[in-house]
């Protein structure tokens, strides 16, 4: 297993947000974590990325293993520098005062000496998202929501990490852009990128992923392949509109 989450309990202050999550991901997979508002999806990804409090909750029990080793004590920038995993956060968090190109260059910090990789990855990003190429010199604040999401994904690719976690990449996107985004992610997966995607939109997520977990108020209540979950009566009722 590449990533193993074991009985993870996390707290914001005194409020427990996750009550003992366990799940795992192997290299090359597309896995989704679905759940409604407040289920704990973002809390899970923030915990995995090891961001400090108060940006992220505090892990009080359980463990997170990457290739069998605990990363609980690892600083967040080292997870990225060591090419383990990178998060595309909820709300995108692009650097709006920098241009599109500068955002990408900044994100290439972990691979700064590998000019070949940087060049190839830029080309790859621009062929996946031609709109970004058109706007490469523009201040990124002025991009539309969908374009900003593309930039956020592009930035994650530039870090060189082969495991990308995405927090609701479809949020705020028109259906056309949303399908464009998922198609791009699928293409990346074919090139060897492992993906963990968090979604409220269960239908889209289960179409896209091969496996999933259903999260409800901080607990996993169902898991299985996308087919199994789509066929599950409870999941249908709660998340797929009947």
């Amino acid at each position: 297993m590449m990533l193993e989450v074991k009985d993870l309990k996390v707290k914001y202050g005194n409020i427990e947000a996750l009550h003992g999550l366990s799940f795992n991901i192997d290299r090359g997979e597309i896995v989704t974590l679905i759940g409604s508002n407040g289920a704990g999806k973002t809390s899970t990804l923030l915990s995995l990325s090891r961001l400090p409090q108060p940006d992220a909750p505090k892990v009080i029990e359980g463990d997170i293993l990457f290739d069998g080793e605990s990363i609980l004590g690892t600083e967040p920038h080292l997870l990225v520098q060591n090419q383990m995993m990178v998060l595309v956060p909820e709300g995108r968090h692009i650097f709006g005062n920098l241009s599109v190109m500068e955002n990408l260059e900044l994100a290439s910090y972990p691979v700064r000496n590998d000019t070949q990789f940087i060049g190839e990855t830029k080309d790859q990003i621009f062929s996946l998202f031609p709109r970004l190429y058109e706007r490469r010199k523009q201040r990124s604040e002025s991009l539309s929501g969908g374009e900003q999401q593309m930039l956020a994904v592009g930035r994650a690719l530039m870090t060189g990490c082969k495991f990308i976690m995405l927090d609701e990449p479809s949020m705020g996107l028109a259906p056309v852009l949303m399908y464009e985004m998922f198609r791009a992610l699928k293409e990346l997966n074919k090139k060897g990128i492992t993906i963990l995607v968090v979604e409220q939109n269960a239908k889209v997520a289960l179409d896209f992923a091969s496996r999933g977990y259903v999260l409800d108020t901080g607990e996993i209540i169902a898991e299985g392949t996308s087919e199994e979950l789509s066929a599950n009566k409870d999941v249908q009722k709660a998340y797929l509109g009947g």
Binding site: L51, E75, V80, H93, L98, A107, Y109, P110
Partner: peptide, 14 residues
């Protein structure tokens, strides 16, 4: 300049 805009995302870039 990036930090001045959004500190949160800096560690996410490694």
């Amino acid at each position: 300049r990036a930090v001045s805009y959004d500190k949160f995302a800096i560690p996410l870039m490694g």
